[in-house]
Simulated assay, not measured.
Amino acid sequence: MSEIDDLMAHLPMDQIAARLGVDPAQAEQSTRTVLPALLGGLQANAQDPAGAQSLAGALQQHDPSLLGSGLDRVDENDGQAIVGNIFGQHTDSVASRLGSVGGAGGSGIVQQLLPLLAPYVMAYLARRLSGTGGLGGILGGALGGAGGGVQPASGGVGDVLGGVLGQVLGGAGQAAPTSSSTSSGAPGGILGDLLGGLLGGGKRA
């Protein structure tokens, strides 16, 4: 099972489908398109030292117990803030580009999904990082490479977070359904364009 599949298994897809007003199959397709963009945006932010510190601090505020819980526990205002921090002024452009991916369901669905999924993504990353000696250990021992599970050469916060995000992303570009994608609108290509063209190498925390 891929990391994306593992994260998907912790999402209340029936509730998400009902919230979006679509069938579960469409909700799953759309979710598999949106998740890599959120993770990729966080990974881009982690490449910047200030962004990495900010992300690590934000992850400390997110409870891994959200995973497996229903939408009633999701703070959509928090979700909107997370999305804003990741994509900033490019949020609408990101939603438009992702919505154009075959099977994504359009930008309207993507706009609704982003704040719903963002808290789950943060909770999932917080859980993953708990296996590297804890977020506190990552922050406190960044210069000494204190993180246990993911050991980048420099040991910095950005390296630790980037390493974990890279593992979670894995084959994320292939995780989204491609049966109705075109070569110009494939999820992996869209994700690369978003990160390279819109985020500019991770300038936000």
Rank of each mutant, 00 (worst) to 15 (best):
I4M: 00
M8Q: 03
H10I: 03
M13T: 10
M13F: 07
R19A: 15
L20A: 01
G21Q: 08
D23A: 12
Q26T: 02
Q26I: 01
E28Q: 07
Q29P: 00
Q29H: 15
T31D: 03
T31L: 01
T33E: 10
P36N: 09
L42P: 14
L42G: 13
N45T: 07
A46G: 14
Q47H: 14
Q47L: 14
Q47M: 15
D48S: 04
P49H: 03
P49F: 07
A50G: 08
S54F: 06
S54W: 06
A56P: 09
A58R: 11
H62Y: 03
S65H: 08
G70A: 04
R73V: 08
R73L: 15
E76N: 01
D78I: 13
G79S: 10
Q80Y: 08
A81P: 08
Q89R: 13
Q89K: 13
H90V: 11
H90W: 10
T91M: 05
T91K: 06
T91N: 03
A95P: 05
S96P: 02
S96I: 09
G103D: 10
A104S: 15
A104E: 05
A104T: 08
A104K: 08
G105Q: 12
G105K: 10
G105P: 12
G108A: 10
G108P: 01
I109M: 06
I109T: 09
L113G: 10
L113E: 06
L113A: 05
L114F: 08
P115E: 12
P119I: 05
V121M: 05
L125F: 13
A126K: 00
R128F: 02
L129I: 08
G134R: 03
L135Q: 13
G137S: 15
L139W: 00
G140N: 11
G141H: 04
A142H: 00
G144W: 00
V150D: 07
P152L: 12
S154G: 15
G155Y: 02
G155C: 09
G155N: 00
G155M: 03
V157S: 01
V157R: 06
V157M: 01
D159E: 15
D159P: 12
G162W: 01
G162S: 00
G163N: 03
Q167A: 13
L169R: 07
G170L: 01
G171A: 06
G171S: 07
A172T: 00
A176Y: 10
T178I: 08
S179Y: 00
S180K: 04
T182R: 11
A186M: 07
A186V: 04
P187N: 13
P187Q: 11
G188F: 11
G188T: 12
I190P: 06
G192A: 15
G192M: 13
L195H: 05
G200K: 05
G201M: 05
G202M: 02
A205T: 07
